[in-house]
Design a protein around this nucleic acid. Sequence first.
DNA 1: CGCCGGTTTGACATACTTCAAGAGAAGTGG
DNA 2: CCACTTCTCTTGAAGTATGTCAAACCGGCG
Lengths: 244, 244
Amino acid sequence: MKIPDSNIVRCSECPIRHRAVCARCDDDELGILEGMKSYRTFAAGDPILWRGEELVYVASVVSGVATLSKTMEDGRTQMVGLLLPSDFIGRPGRQEIDFDVTATTDVTLCCFSRRPFEKLVDETPHVAQRLMELALDELDAARDWMLLLGRKTAREKVATFLEMLARRSRNPDADGTQHEMTLPMTRDQISNYLGLTLETVSRQLNALKNDKIIAFIDRRNFEVLNLAALHDATGDDNDGGMIS
Amino acid sequence: MKIPDSNIVRCSECPIRHRAVCARCDDDELGILEGMKSYRTFAAGDPILWRGEELVYVASVVSGVATLSKTMEDGRTQMVGLLLPSDFIGRPGRQEIDFDVTATTDVTLCCFSRRPFEKLVDETPHVAQRLMELALDELDAARDWMLLLGRKTAREKVATFLEMLARRSRNPDADGTQHEMTLPMTRDQISNYLGLTLETVSRQLNALKNDKIIAFIDRRNFEVLNLAALHDATGDDNDGGMIS
DNA sequence: CGCCGGTTTGACATACTTCAAGAGAAGTGG
DNA sequence: CCACTTCTCTTGAAGTATGTCAAACCGGCG
């Protein structure tokens, strides 16, 4: 279901220009990238890369949401990453990846052939530097997620997930109420993200509703009624790590 | 309990020369690092860095094992990384880290002041490139661990941990038996690594013993009697990701 | 209208935790 | 060398959060 996309945007006008792998590039370097890139779009639900598939392209997410997931032989699956605009797919120096990449919403990628890109990484310090920063950021996120997977209760997991969504789409009212937000995935996908079953996710979501912490508009849309209570339910520190 | 260590090894003779952050450096670049570095040693159990502490140094692990861990307000803790020789501590461009670093065995670090090191990363492409590779490797390991934390059973977790140790200290006999190996941590630390309680770890270790998959020499030393059965118990694929 | 995927809800099962006691090893000081 | 403490580990019994299985619900769509 790959749809080659013809309306290539100029890098200088690219929405992820300042955050993606090209963020530190100067105009000359950008010119080189401009000549290498091609866009690809995927519809919601489409697979982008299969585990073990040869990695022909590496890419930046331009728009949409994609997920990384690992699946065991008996079908148990665990999401191990969420790719948002400006996040990078693939790694220079490796021929394949050992997880699946799937489009959760419609996704547009800015693709580079792997081989020429690897050459570029070797020759263009600004790209390697930025790639390092992106990898370290992902590592931080992965470590937070490990704490969640290993030690948090079901309620804390769900609350953490909702709080993350709330932080992402910053639009709080003066009173701390957060207006209409959308769950970007099904209950099943959320459960794979949180290391739970879909039934438990459903129950915890309704428990938070009954506690007046969130309210549902419909099954996919909700609002946060009490951001402080939501935060309390996450089990996270209040202060973000200040020494007390 | 920091003990400045005087016997500085020449970089060219350093045991981690070919794997650490300096792996890609040429002789000139190595000379610069040589002038910046200093060694520090920590005794088993010592804290190396506290969460939120100002990051004065970044460092490579020269010898020993250190762990990264996160702790919640109520004391639940989860290890989020294992640092072995050649692994890197700290990140350029950030003033603090949000996890604790602790020496599990006696540890020697090769330290660089953060500020000058950051400057070096900007100016020395080989360092940024290597740092990127190290970060991507750690990311791969973190993702495997997320699958374990989110989806594996207690038995699978313990088996996976033992198999990892076995793979690390490669010394199998012809028949696949693996001779004396050492658990580098207490049951409590293992449980924090695996997202379990120490009791569950103890029970699963004894279950593997009763199944004749491992045998204990004493509480800290064991041998793998049946590597194939151990692998089966991990729940992982047999083939490492080939397309079938 | 009737199907269909996603979701909710209930009843039940169970893997893991929690709590508690005790056994082994290892160190310490007399 | 022997108490004595301390720490780690084992083992048992009981509790509980979450998973499993199953049925029903709901909104959308052909």
